[in-house]
Amino acid sequence: MMITGLALLSSPASSKTRLCESENVTVSFQLEEHAEMVCKGVRKAKVLFENCGMPSLSTPLRIDVVEDMIGDCLGQYHCGGNLIEIISPAVMQGRGEPDGVFAHLSSGKYFQSVLIHELAHAATDGMPCPFDFCHVGPEYVAYSMQVMSLSREEQMLFEQSIDMDNLISVEHLHPLVLFMAPDVFTQRVWAHLKQREAPCEFLGQLINGEVIIDFETVEPK
């Protein structure tokens, strides 16, 4: 999830901070194992992004592992604020749907995939948008990276609930699907991406603004 503006939540007094080795990322945490998981996820994202031609995480970034968050969010990237907030693994697993598209993942793998989703938002902050708001493009990239971060075996389990041969068009990626049925949106994104001749090249075109898959929306008066 990506949100605009910056509304920092104060970290608990008992939180500690550390800098991920060789990365420009500071982690705020309560349990040492959470810091290790974050730094491991950042390293994995760095390799994944490089392999797919994604922008690098060049700007200093802070990641806060928290125990609660407004609404049902699992993670949030604060646009322009160089901050990610992410729910701790145990709480995150409890919030996940038992029949959701990522239900087959362990709590650690699920946490890492959500982190990489938010890191993708951080790496692509400021994607070109010809409209007042663009949600589909940034979320397409973030969900693509989230599923791409899984092992091939985990991806195959994810794909069991999708008809990968059913051609997905941009019209199937409407923002209403994103907001009303995010699991369905994620499935359609992955199927659509896998149907591209050059998936990473397509993601690059989205990030550079060469391809726009968002829709212009009109606010009701």
Rank of each mutant, 00 (worst) to 15 (best):
N24T: 12
I3N: 00
G94V: 07
E197H: 06
M69Y: 05
E33T: 15
Q187Y: 02
V211W: 04
I3L: 09
I87P: 00
S107W: 02
L74N: 04
L83G: 03
L173G: 10
A103V: 02
K40S: 15
L176M: 11
T59V: 13
L48T: 08
I3E: 11
Y140G: 03
Q155M: 07
M37P: 05
S169L: 12
E118V: 09
P199M: 05
P128N: 09
A142V: 03
M156A: 15
H78F: 12
W190R: 07
D132E: 15
F179W: 13
G137C: 06
P98W: 02
M148F: 12
T4C: 10
S151R: 05
F202Q: 05
E171M: 11
A7W: 02
A45Y: 13
Q30G: 14
L9V: 14
P60V: 06
G137M: 00
L193F: 00
S15N: 11
G71N: 08
A7E: 09
F185K: 03
L119P: 09
A45R: 01
D64W: 07
F131H: 14
V65H: 08
G94R: 11
V66I: 15
Q155K: 06
D163N: 15
I3G: 04
R18L: 15
T59G: 00
C73G: 12
C200M: 12
C20N: 13
M69R: 07
D214N: 14
Q30V: 15
Q205S: 13
A13P: 02
L167I: 14
P182Y: 06
A191H: 04
P130L: 10
E216N: 12
